[in-house]
């Protein structure tokens, strides 16, 4: 059964983001013969060439009057998508994708399935799978309406790497849509203090809300201090609570790390945290909940209260020095 798929590319300033090629992998696994890609931006010609060259797929480059706003993207996409008659619209589950995808679905009279991590298909239907409860359980969704909008979690699929026979065609559209209720006013980068190079550390010991209170950070620091080239990291709530500076946050909206060893202490293992540490070479997780999702990415799992366990671990290390 043919499925016509439209992918909305996710772009940085000068190039498509890797997740764009992950979306292509998903689409190609569903129906490699009926995929097209739309890229939007004030100056997206080069990116359109890059995507058409790397994938061999046909690309529509929409040049916009101003930078991204969800309103503008929805205006433009809800005008050009219906004419193309897709069954599926695939968008990255990034800050930007999450911002406009649900509203786009409403405009197209359909529903949106977000943060998809995998899919399966039978002859008749597609099933999309996403995590709930910070990864403790999964939800399978079969869309009953067409088209269906899905947002795909970055990192869930490998980037598309098959070499195309020829670059895809590119169609250029100049959009005259104007912002109305939302005006873009640039980007900012919150002042970064002299960073401990979290992403250069060979060992990262990370604390989550399970540490209970800032007084227990001392345990985490003492454990980290046992390793050379180590650093303390944390989940987002610890930074929001002010227990750790934001530069020590690991995850989607923090740092991405891939140390030799990552020790997760009292971290539940939400997809947003896991996105930032899953490529660590060795992962040890300490959590008192035997069903915590962090145990799905960990190589070694310790079900224990960390306040009791870490002192014992420090003690055992002393014994072997």
């Amino acid at each position: 059964m043919d499925k016509h798929i439209v992918i909305i590319a996710e772009t940085g300033a000068t190039a498509a983001l890797p997740v764009t090629y992950e979306l292509v992998t998903l689409a190609a696994a569903i129906d490699p013969d009926h995929i097209e890609i739309i890229v939007l931006g004030t100056d997206c010609g080069d990116i359109a060439h890059e995507i058409a060259g790397r994938t061999g797929l046909s690309v529509t480059a929409v040049s916009t009057s101003v930078e991204y706003t969800p309103e503008l993207w929805k205006d433009i996409l809800s005008r050009i998508i219906p004419g193309r008659g897709p069954d599926l619209i695939v968008i990255a589950h990034t800050a930007c994708g999450q911002d406009f995808a649900p509203g786009l679905a409403v405009r197209l009279g359909t529903s949106c399935i977000t943060a998809v991590e995998s899919f399966s298909r039978t002859a008749a239907e597609l099933t999309f799978t996403r995590a709930i409860l910070n990864g403790k359980a999964h939800m399978d969704i079969v869309p009953d309406l067409s088209p269906c909008v899905v947002t795909v979690l970055p990192g869930a699929f490998e980037a598309y790497s098959a070499a195309p026979r020829a670059p895809g065609s590119i169609e250029f559209i100049q959009s005259d849509a104007k912002p109305c209720k939302i005006m873009p006013s640039g980007m900012s980068h919150p002042e970064e203090e002299d960073a401990i190079p979290l992403n250069e550390a060979e060992v990262v010991v990370s604390a989550g809300r399970g540490i209970g209170g800032p007084e227990n950070l001392d345990l985490i620091e003492r454990l980290a201090a046992r390793f050379k080239r180590s650093a303390v990291g944390g989940s987002r709530p610890l930074c929001d609570l002010g227990w750790l500076p934001y530069r020590q946050q690991v995850g989607l909206t923090g740092k991405t790390v891939s140390p030799k060893l990552y020790i997760a202490c009292g971290i539940s293992g939400s997809p947003q945290h896991v996105a930032g540490m899953k490529n660590s070479q060795l992962i040890i997780a300490i959590n008192k909940d035997p069903n915590a999702a962090i145990f799905q990415v960990a190589d070694f799992c310790i079900v224990a209260d960390l306040v009791e366990f870490i002192p014992l671990l420090l003690d055992e290390q002393d014994g072997t020095l």
């Binding site: 399935i113 070694f300 799992c301």
Partner: peptide, 28 residues
């Protein structure tokens, strides 16, 4: 409703090695 859905527990996906024993043995 616009879609059909179902739920399942995730523990079956992949599980690291559980370190068992007393807490002292686990630490060792």
């Amino acid at each position: 409703l616009m879609n059909r859905f179902g739920f399942r527990e995730a523990a079956t996906v992949k599980q690291g090695v559980m370190i068992t024993g007393s807490m002292r043995e686990q630490a060792r």
